[in-house]
Each structure stands twice: as C-alpha cells, then as structure tokens.
Nucleic acid binder design. Structure first.
Lengths: 215, 215
DNA sequence: GTCTATACCTAGATAGAC
DNA sequence: GTCTATCTAGGTATAGAC
C-alpha cells in the first residue's frame, strides 16, 4: 500500500492547494466570510465545488487556513517593526502606522480579519491572533516602562486597549462601502490625518510624552 | 373588517411578546446568537416554535429587538453618567467604570452585545450601537478639551479608540468560560484591579493628567 | 391563538462516472 | 483527480387541526 508520490505530483498538488487558498482569500476579502460559500470559492478558483474536498476536509478547515495565512502575515509585519531598531515609543508609533496603512490599503481583507462576522472556527482563530497582537504590544510597553519612556502601568491591559483602539478606529473606514469614509466621521480628513491622529491617540494611551516625531 | 381588540387582549398579547423577548435575551446570553435558534428560544419561552411568528415576522426581527432593548439600556445608563454632574474627566472615569462593572456582572449578555458572532441584521444594529457610544464619549472629550482638562485632539477618533479599548479589555474576561479570567492575563488581579487599570488607561488615552480619583 | 406536522431552502458534503 | 449530480442536515417559516 505504500506508494510514494513523485516530486512532480506533489508540486502540482501543492500548487493547486495554494491557488485555492489564494482565491479563497480574495473571495473572502471581496464578499466576507458569510458569502464565501464553497461554491463561490470553487468557482473563483476554477474548480468544481466537490474538488475543494480534495484539499481540505471541510469548509471550516479552508477558512481557518485562509485566516491563518493572512493574519499571520500581518502579525509578522508588525512584529518586525515592534522588535526592530529604535526606542520603544517610536517603534510603537511606527508599528501602529504600518499596521493601519496596510489595513487601509487592503480594506476588504483587513475588515475580514479584524471585524467581519465569521463562523466559530474562524472566530477562535481571530481571538488567538488578537492575543498575539496584545503580546507584541505588551512587550514594547514593558520595555518603555523599564526605560522610563512610559509611566508605570499594567502592560497587558494597555496592550489590550491598544489593540482594541486601533481596531475600532480602523473599523469604520474599513467597513464603509469603499472610499467614502477615510476619516472616522466620514466627512473630514485624509488617510494621513487619520494615521496621525490614531498614532497620537495610541501614544497617549500608553502614556508617552506628547510630540515624539511619529516615524 | 375594522374590529378593535379589547384592552385586556392587547395587554395579554403584549405580555406574551415581552415574555418572549425576555426569554430570548436569556437564551442569547447563555448560548450566543448562533445557537439561539427559533426552536431553542420558543422552548425557553414555553411556546411552540411556530407561535414565535405570532409576535415577530422573522427570526431576524426578534433578534434585532432583543439586541435593541439590551443595548439601548446600556447606552442609556452610560449616557446618564456621562451627561450627569461633575467635570468631564471624572464623568468619563465613572462612565467607564459603570459600563465595565455592568458588563462583568452580566457577562453572557455583554459578550453577546459586544463581540459574539451574530447574523448580519444584528451586526448592523451593533454598529449603530457603537456609534452611539462613540458619540457620547466624543461629547465628553470635547467638553474636556474646551475646559482645558484634556489636550487638543480629534474627539471622534479618541472616542472610537476609547470604545475599542474598553471593548477589547473586557472581551477576554467576558469571552472566557466563566470566572476563570478576571484579569486580562487570566492569572492576576481582581475585578477591582481590572477596573482601576482600565480606567487609568482610558484617562491616559484621552490625555487626562494622572491620578484624578476614579469616582 | 396555539399547537403539531411539515414544507422548503440553503449549504456542506459525498458517490460514482469519466 | 476532477467533474456532475445528489444526498443530507439544520433551521426558518407555513398550513391546517384543535
């Protein structure tokens, strides 16, 4: 019974799987989790609905994989900035800036990752993902406290607050039809203004002294 | 065709409707929106599934009504505090305190209102509800800026950040199985500590000077 | 008006031909 | 391995008896 697939076969299968994940990600970004049925995803990938089950045991498994890839990428990007060079406060500022900019550049996907209604399995994955953001923020906050840039505070709670604040501030621009609302009010301000205000708010929240240049 | 129901009939019908809403709210608080099927709700209310449609045209309509009642109540409570007596900063502090305490005392419902996966109609209602929180917070922040208690800032963005921060800090305690996690880390701190830290974080976020007594 | 029973629809998942 | 066609389950909504 032990029959080993040739490398070429493996590569082909893997490519098909990757293609499916990529198309599923695109569909989710466009129409959200609830509308991303197996049929819709399969259509987009150019295969039959049944064929999806050659690559994933269930729709949930595919959805989770889609989420994990996309969210993992964002976490990695943020991690690189937050653990990069510079002092804690400026890393925090640029981390938030990078995160927000990326989200605003890919709104559909960002909304799906951050806020869009999703099945329980994806919801659980999202919680996990937010926990990682929290952990990253907490690291920086702790460092800031240690170096005296930030006042004493419960780093985990601040980190949770930062995660929530960033998500909520972005949620409205992201959730809006398209580019109708760059500012939170829907009427004022460009993306840059939004970013500047968000960064300032985040720094205040962590207790950083006013006006450090926001990378 | 114009036949007018007697007052007694009306009262009975209304009572039945209220009872149904109350039971539906309880079910949602216990098991979440996704598990609150018409059958489950009807069972809990002691009526047949079909009878639900005597009071509501659809499951969605019932769900929206449940959300609206519960969420409306929370908004009203917060509004009373935020527009009550005292200076802007202390009202902000006690408003957050009251909100958080209420949420922690009724976790299931708070989680359903704040974060639990829900059908689109409820999701839309939730957005609206959050907009109201934002508006209330923004009012107080504007007042604080005007009186010089708070530094200049974009009040709407700060308000969104506050809404998100409070929600996220509470989400983990709320989402946890039961009382395993009172602190954000799941290990440390009592509810009071959590409240104190949350309040401090919120005040920092709005730029309030440190250590006003937190009502 | 409320119940029982059921129709019906949506979506995920499977079987068997090719 | 992939497609077409189909099965099934879960849950909303309706019909008709009482």
């Amino acid at each position: 019974m032990a029959y080993r697939k040739t490398p070429a076969e493996l590569r082909r299968l893997d490519a098909a799987r990757e293609h499916l994940i990529a198309r599923a990600t695109a569909v989710v970004a466009e129409v959200g989790w609830s509308q991303a049925s197996v049929t819709a995803v399969a259509d987009s990938a150019g295969i039959a609905a049944g064929s999806v089950y050659q690559h994933f045991p269930s729709k949930s498994a595919l959805a989770v994989e889609v989420f994990r890839r996309a969210a993992g990428h964002e976490v990695a990007v943020l991690e690189e900035v937050l653990r990069g060079p510079g002092d804690a406060v400026s890393r925090l500022a640029s981390g938030v800036g990078v995160f927000a900019r990326r989200a605003l550049e890919n709104r559909g996907l960002a909304y799906a990752l951050l806020a869009a209604p999703a099945e329980p399995a994806v919801g659980a994955e999202r919680l996990d993902h937010r926990r990682r953001y929290r952990a990253l923020f907490a690291e920086v906050v702790r460092e800031g406290i240690a170096t005296g840039q930030l006042p004493p505070q419960h780093a985990e709670i601040t980190a949770a607050a930062l995660t929530g604040a960033v998500g909520e501030v972005l949620a409205y621009p992201l959730g809006a039809p398209d580019d109708t609302a760059t500012g939170t009010t829907g009427s004022t301000g460009s993306t840059d203004d939004l970013l500047a205000e968000l960064t300032a708010t985040v720094l205040r929240c962590a207790g950083a002294a006013a006006h450090p240049t926001t990378a």
